[in-house]
């Protein structure tokens, strides 16, 4: 499945929906979306990923890039991740730097 990355701003939260396979070939598209979110002044990032089927370290590096570009105070939420997405995030030690949830709860996330 081809990778897709879309951005929607909602009350200061950058809702980035990812689908398909996120590898080194598609990571630049994800990175561009993160840069667009930063340019729009996002205070938080919510990655909506129930339809994301695969992630390699190239995708994980964009998560690190997002934090480093947008600052320590930017919380990153991971919403609806399947095991094949969570496992490499755990193995690479990134999970403790993210918030995870099964569904997007605006009353919790959009309190910025």
């Amino acid at each position: 499945m081809a990778f897709e990355s879309t951005l929607e701003m909602s009350n200061g939260v950058a809702k980035i929906t990812l689908s398909g396979e996120l590898d080194a070939g598609s990571a630049p598209q994800f990175k561009s979306t993160v840069e667009e979110a930063a340019g729009q002044g996002a205070k938080r990032i919510a990655l909506i990923v129930p339809d994301l089927e695969y992630i390699s370290s190239a995708g994980l590096r964009v998560l690190v890039f997002a934090r480093q570009k947008m600052g320590k105070g930017i919380d990153i939420y991971l919403i609806g991740a399947q095991d094949q997405i969570l496992d490499p995030i755990k193995q690479s030690g990134l999970l403790h730097s993210l918030y995870t949830a099964e569904t997007y709860d605006a009353s919790t996330i959009e309190t910025v």
Partner: peptide, 22 residues
């Protein structure tokens, strides 16, 4: 060092680390 917070993590090195872990 995978215990570093995101803001201090280098962008490289994760791929080979994952290979060794997996």
């Amino acid at each position: 060092d995978i215990n570093l917070p995101l803001e201090k993590r280098p962008l490289g090195g994760m791929g080979v680390y994952l290979v060794m872990e997996l």
